[in-house]
């Protein structure tokens, strides 16, 4: 009989006994760094531009709404002028 047959690897069902399951999560104290400085820098830089772009986009939308109202007013004036011509 080979050594493998004598000491078979524990199967998944055998190792996951109720006693060996994780029952709580604990935080690491000290140890290696949890946040990469480079990632945080990239995140901060991205956030900066995203916020500014959102504001610029909102300004662009307000301007678009203003143009729509101007178009509306122009049409109204054109209609009024056409009415006057008929008279």
């Amino acid at each position: 009989m080979s050594a493998l047959e004598q000491n078979p690897a524990p199967s998944a069902s055998a190792s996951a006994t109720p006693d060996s399951r994780a029952t709580s999560f604990q935080a690491v104290e000290g140890g290696p760094e949890q946040h990469s400085g480079a990632n945080l820098l990239v995140a901060a830089y991205s956030v900066l531009w995203v916020i500014l772009m959102v504001w610029l986009f909102s300004m662009w939308r307000k301007q678009a709404s203003l143009h729509a109202k101007i178009d509306d007013l122009e049409k109204t004036l054109d209609r009024a002028a056409a009415k006057l011509e008929k008279k």
Binding site: E33, H35, G37, L40, L41, A43, A44, V47, L48, I51, L52
Partner: peptide, 14 residues
């Protein structure tokens, strides 16, 4: 202010 309040905590995390 939103930029300050997001970039600051990202620095603080480290």
């Amino acid at each position: 202010g939103a930029i300050v309040l997001t970039t600051g905590p990202l620095w603080a995390a480290k």
